[in-house]
Design a protein around this nucleic acid. Structure first.
Lengths: 211, 211
DNA sequence: GGGGCAATACCACAAAAGGGGTATTTTTAA
DNA sequence: TTAAAAATACCCCTTTTGTGGTATTGCCCC
């Protein structure tokens, strides 16, 4: 190892305790320093500009603002900046979204500290680090054939999200410029695939999946 | 100050990073030591028995298990044990529930570290510490009259819970030995009070409130 | 002892959701 | 290049929700 100064990290997460705790954890590492903490999306750009961190650890949920959007915005505005998404959602779709948005990593909040450090160091060395929890809660809870049943299509997931926002089939049809009948068909298929029969079940399902 | 050994704390939260971060934060205090960490509700009782902590910091959401239930269970099983609920729900109702369940404190995850430490020390000295975030997201999002609108009755909350479990009005009526019409009336009132009009909205609301 | 609230219950009608089909086109992958 | 999968769309009919009312009972509190 060459004697280089510790890498500068910026934490963006509106859960202050999590943010503080993470700082404490990371500061304990000799090769890493937390150069700043941000608690709202609004402060993020200014903070990155002022503190010039090498890497940003970014939560997905910042009072309604999408962490993925903010992350890709940061990357486009600050050349050479690394962004790792930190989330509690054990969701392949979300991971894919993060990857497509050009982010450098995706880590779960229930990851071990070791995994976090490994991820940070990998990204600082120019790599990418995307990790889900293989033995995630959800899969455990629903048994063997769940993964098969979960093979929802893109459209289906899209419609689930809109249902969760409280839209009726008609409103969804409007928004997607489709027939109401099509939406109804999708809903039927979703119900069949998930083995449910009510909106209530669907929302519960969706929220457990992290939308 | 008398030269007493540091107080022993146990952390119960299934978000490992949060848990680890908190440990790191707390260990930095000379008068506090984290004597253990637990990531699932199932391990909680055994851990308390083995580690004999003075105070437990407990998350509300442990894979479906209610932190409040677990907390009051711990208090009843271990005399003298203090339990502080840690949650991201900025919710007076939940706070009241925690208080009624006999827990010793309620703190938000987006509290400052100072507030957390103050809460812990207050409870360790035999006090109670219940804090909400005055400028919290949730209240902001719904305006001034939200608190008034939120004055749900016991029956209403009970019915919301059953709706969330996917039961129809008829099934709820059966279970509570009431007329379907009565359930419908309650649902109307709930919708009015919360300013919503769909099951989807209701479930979202309920989940944000921590059920 | 009367006003307010919670809980119960009913009617009627409109709007959605749920469930049973079938069918066409486009996209994807073997 | 062809067969499967995904996305689109329609029909019909039932059940459940949603919304507008009204009304009675019991309870607490001032």
């Amino acid at each position: 190892m060459e004697p280089s100064p510790p890498s500068r990290l910026l934490l963006i997460d509106d859960h202050r305790l999590f943010n503080d705790g993470l700082k404490s954890l990371l500061d304990a590492q000799t090769d890493l320093t937390v150069c700043g903490q941000v608690f709202t999306a609004a402060d993020a750009l200014a903070a990155v500009h002022r503190l010039a961190p090498q890497l940003v650890l970014l939560d997905v949920n910042l009072q309604g603002v999408s962490g993925i959007d903010l992350g890709s915005q940061l990357i486009h505005n600050f050349a050479g900046l690394y962004v790792i998404l930190l989330t509690m959602y054990n969701q392949p779709k979300l991971l894919d979204e993060a990857r497509r948005a050009g982010l450098h990593g995706y880590l779960l909040k229930d990851a071990t500290t070791d995994l976090l450090l490994k991820g940070i160091r990998t990204v600082l060395n120019g790599g990418k680090f995307f990790a889900l929890n293989e033995s995630g809660h959800f899969i455990d809870r629903f048994g063997d054939d769940f993964a098969r049943r979960l093979s929802l299509t893109f459209r289906e997931v899209e419609i689930i999200r809109l249902i969760c926002q409280g839209l009726s089939s008609e409103q969804i049809a409007d928004q997607l410029t489709l027939s109401v009948e099509t939406i109804k068909t999708h809903r039927k298929n979703i119900h069949f695939k998930l083995g449910i029969s009510k909106v209530a079940d669907l929302i519960q399902f969706a929220i457990k999946q992290g939308l």
